[in-house]
């Protein structure tokens, strides 16, 4: 474990806690993409299958359980909670997210470290996570006023994978870890998708003005 990976995990943890708090306290999920949240449930279930077969550390196990539980909880709130589900921007969150699942799975069948069920599903989860934020970013451009809890949620979510990139650089040079192109390229694509959001988020933070994305 290094500081970049810990900071990344904490940023990721904070983002999901922030989102849950926003939904629970404001009883609203306005501006949040259900499609992205559902993709994250698939990502975590596909990636954390080794939860029961391989014990790495207490931290590792607890964090996997937390990410699975929070992502399922968020989807439950947005789909079934009588008050929250009314606030879902159903008409704006129109990205057909099931379209990205087969290509990611096919790519995982073609490009992976080793051809085993666990490895292919793990690889699939990396490819899917890289594009999972797309519905949310599209929804952001469609919703005029972005509340700052949502803005902070997306910033932390983007920051987590950016910190993981630093973690991989650190591990490659300091721990002489071997090249892990699948993680690196997926992580780069994922972080690159946040580029313009980061730009407008930092700009709004510097000028102390409301976060607005160009249409």
């Amino acid at each position: 474990m290094n500081i970049f990976r810990l900071a990344g995990d904490m940023s990721h943890l904070l983002s999901v806690i922030l989102l849950l708090l926003k939904i629970r306290t404001t009883k609203s999920c306005a501006g949040i993409s259900l499609k992205t949240q559902e993709l994250y449930v698939v990502v975590f279930l596909a990636r954390y299958l080794n939860l029961f077969t391989r014990y790495y550390s207490f931290y590792n196990t607890v964090m996997k359980l937390v990410f699975i539980a929070t992502s399922v909880c968020i989807v439950w709130y947005m789909r079934f909670h009588k008050v929250v589900k009314q606030t879902y921007n159903k008409d704006l969150d129109t990205f057909r997210h099931y379209v990205v699942i087969p290509p990611c799975f096919l790519l995982a069948l073609l490009v992976h470290h080793e051809f085993t069920v666990m490895e292919v599903l793990w690889t699939f989860s990396l490819y899917l996570e890289a594009v999972a934020i797309l519905p949310q970013l599209i929804l952001l451009q469609r919703t005029r006023n972005i509340d700052n809890l949502t803005g902070n949620y997306i910033f932390l979510l983007g920051a987590y994978r950016a910190l993981y990139l630093l973690n991989w650089i650190y591990r490659f040079f300091m721990e002489k870890a071997q090249a892990r192109w699948i993680s690196w390229i997926s992580g780069l694509v994922q972080t690159a998708l946040y580029a313009d959001f980061f730009y407008y988020y930092i700009k709004s933070w510097k000028n102390n003005e409301k976060l607005k994305l160009p249409a």
Partner: peptide, 10 residues
């Protein structure tokens, strides 16, 4: 092995 190497991360 690649497994312990790359799968100890979240």
């Amino acid at each position: 092995s690649s497994d312990s190497e790359s799968h100890d991360e979240l």
